[in-house]
Design a protein around this nucleic acid. Sequence first.
DNA 1: TATTTAAGTGTAATATTTACATTTAATTAA
DNA 2: TTAATTAAATGTAAATATTACACTTAAATA
Lengths: 222, 222
Amino acid sequence: MKYHYQKHVKALLAVDCIIFGFNQDNLKILLIKRDFEPEKGKWSLMGGFLRPDETLDEAASRILQKLTGLHDIYLDQLRSFSHPDRDPVDRTVSTAYYALINIEEHNKELTKKHSAEWFNIQDIPALIFDHNDMISQAINRLRYKASTEPIGFELLPEKFTMRQLQKLYEAILGQELDKRNFIKKILSLDVLIKLDEKDMTSSKKGSFLYKFDAEKYDRFKI
Amino acid sequence: MKYHYQKHVKALLAVDCIIFGFNQDNLKILLIKRDFEPEKGKWSLMGGFLRPDETLDEAASRILQKLTGLHDIYLDQLRSFSHPDRDPVDRTVSTAYYALINIEEHNKELTKKHSAEWFNIQDIPALIFDHNDMISQAINRLRYKASTEPIGFELLPEKFTMRQLQKLYEAILGQELDKRNFIKKILSLDVLIKLDEKDMTSSKKGSFLYKFDAEKYDRFKI
DNA sequence: TATTTAAGTGTAATATTTACATTTAATTAA
DNA sequence: TTAATTAAATGTAAATATTACACTTAAATA
């Protein structure tokens, strides 16, 4: 190595994932029972350590895949958490990522192997370290995201009803929305394709299914 | 230490600051001539390494003060940059922060000592590592911020004219704005106090000075 | 007294958001 | 077969926010 820096402290680099899913009426987060000390047995976010040859983004993807079996998942960096005492074992700076996944698609055996469970965002237990703080910041970020671009592609099944989409928005925003205004607004974004099929499980009349128009949806990405 | 983790790679933790300032018509960024190898003599963001007893936020404040002499500065974490080869000397993860300062208030001797210079955001030279990328993300963040909350308190002198505030918005957003609509909009936010004083430097008629109402301004903070 | 300079001001048109209630299609029960 | 039930589907008016656009005013200077 040609040059070297003066001596500076090195720290462990961790990644923690806030994994959002949506099921019927509720926005949920996937938590695991920590299986090593300290705080063994407590609930926590799924995390891991950065490897020498990967970026933080890649580490987050890897960790997510290990837990859910899914790849090509929507992932966004939230921020880095760095309190000197946040991890009692060693100085560790953790970068939090949030992910959006379709609950039905994750590999249940993998999550079971990691003793993972879905929790409604209203019922998050006390977590280790600063993980509750990470979650509340992730929810804020998701709320902001939902208010500036269409959301749901990653969280809903391929085909879904207007009602389901509205319930998702209500769960994220934490408030009820007017049905007619919601439909008007979402249709004006021009990202949905109305199908000929109906979902018959929710009512006698049945309700039309929609899917996202991937190209038009992606135009909203920055 | 009661527990220890398996062996994981440790990395250097750096902080880099994108320091925004505004002068007359232009949004500017403060850059320094790097005074150590590698890339000595090239332009770069002001940065430094995390110390054992501080958070990243605190490190960013410290670095900012070292360069400008200012404290209690507006600072916000942008994101962490982690490409394995981003720093050729050693594995270094850098967390970028952006700061908003009043150009007139910084200590010119300090910036001179660090061979620092202000550059218009249109004229940023090629910087070391991924610093150009950091800057472009910081500008995007600042644009978003300007479109969702009042901005300017940190970037303008205490007293300023409507015209100066409009020029600031135009510099941040990169587009011209209609004078009447701008005034209408900014007054509707109810964060300004109109003073009896006039600024006589810009025209024969003079233009009224305003200042921010700190309390009302802060209500927009999240 | 006329000219110059930038400041200061208003209105109409359009687009967006909000509030709000009835009808429809299909199934199930009588 | 008819009535009752259930959630889906639909429209409009009012309020608010945004955009486009041009003339008048105050003061200094020539």
